[in-house]
Design a protein around this nucleic acid. Sequence first.
DNA 1: ATAGATATAGAACAAAGTGTCCGTTATTGT
DNA 2: ACAATAACGGACACTTTGTTCTATATCTAT
Lengths: 189, 189
Amino acid sequence: MDRRIQKTRKAIFDAFTIMLSRKSYDKITIRDLIEEANIGRSTFYAHFETKDDLLKAMCVDLFDHVFATDLAAEASHDFSVSQRSAKIMLTHILYHLLDDAARLRKIFACESSDLFWQYFRRPFTKLVTEQLLPMANQNALQLPQDLFVDHLTASFGEVVRWWFKTELSAPPEVVEEYFEITAFPLLKA
Amino acid sequence: MDRRIQKTRKAIFDAFTIMLSRKSYDKITIRDLIEEANIGRSTFYAHFETKDDLLKAMCVDLFDHVFATDLAAEASHDFSVSQRSAKIMLTHILYHLLDDAARLRKIFACESSDLFWQYFRRPFTKLVTEQLLPMANQNALQLPQDLFVDHLTASFGEVVRWWFKTELSAPPEVVEEYFEITAFPLLKA
DNA sequence: ATAGATATAGAACAAAGTGTCCGTTATTGT
DNA sequence: ACAATAACGGACACTTTGTTCTATATCTAT
């Protein structure tokens, strides 16, 4: 791929990240971005149609590889196996996040972080439905299924949120333990 | 209070609600609002400094009375009493929400509903800290306290979210039960 | 190394939105 | 009825947006 494109794209992403730490998403103007990125106006529009388009593209850049795991294929009908693979999968995701900590810390600490959590939550919901949902115990079955899924994704989201809020103070294994404490009363058989 | 002020304020709130169901918060312009509300431009600015100011004011109008309960004063050191009063308090909040269902359904169903959940969550966090936190059991104590609070507020938020998503299909008592199933494994002694 | 392709710079543009001001009109509370 | 004041609505300077254009710089493929 053309190195000019790579360079400009990175400059825009970096500028976007910096501006997000300075003001909220809807206060950021295209002018802010091109000045911070030090590029021409028409160059920005050659890469992205709108600010929303940029947001979406950066979320793909941030989160796609995090969930691009083939562990989902390891799903099992045996509870103990499936529970172990779920644990591995979640820890795996946390390590992926840790790999990109420098960028994600800024993103998750920013005023408009909710926008990014939305994009984080969507692919995670898929994994929950496929991996964690079959492990529901009796108590959980009293809940409507969609509420159960919402609850699990929110729980994991909150734990990760807390993790970044505390400057990644705990190792992924401990964070995964915390999630088990909050959510696994509804999962363990 | 001057009836003109009341009338204009309501017109702006209504217009804001309608526009929120049509487009996202940051796409809504002041022009949209004054056209929908059928008021003059300077009139809008006589009431609110900015769009963010309007958002904040409407959230006060929506949520202040919901949490304006003196049940918090009933806190007790006796677990069974405190558990019962917590249950009453939560159900009370759900009934408050039900009273204003017409407006809240539109708000919580809109594209920018996250903005409103933020304002909903803040006062609720206070109640959780004062009422629910003292009821933590052994398992919960393995969690950092701030994570525990985050988890409880998120759980209640998710249940309410689901409630509105399903068009308020269940009565408040059942919704409160659902919250107990998701959160009380960490609360019951 | 060169040539053809293409990304970027930079300026100009109309259209739309912002926030403020001010004189006029209409409505209100007492 | 009258004084107070809220709303109207036009005008203003200013910023942002998204597009278009040409000239220049940089890249890839050969």
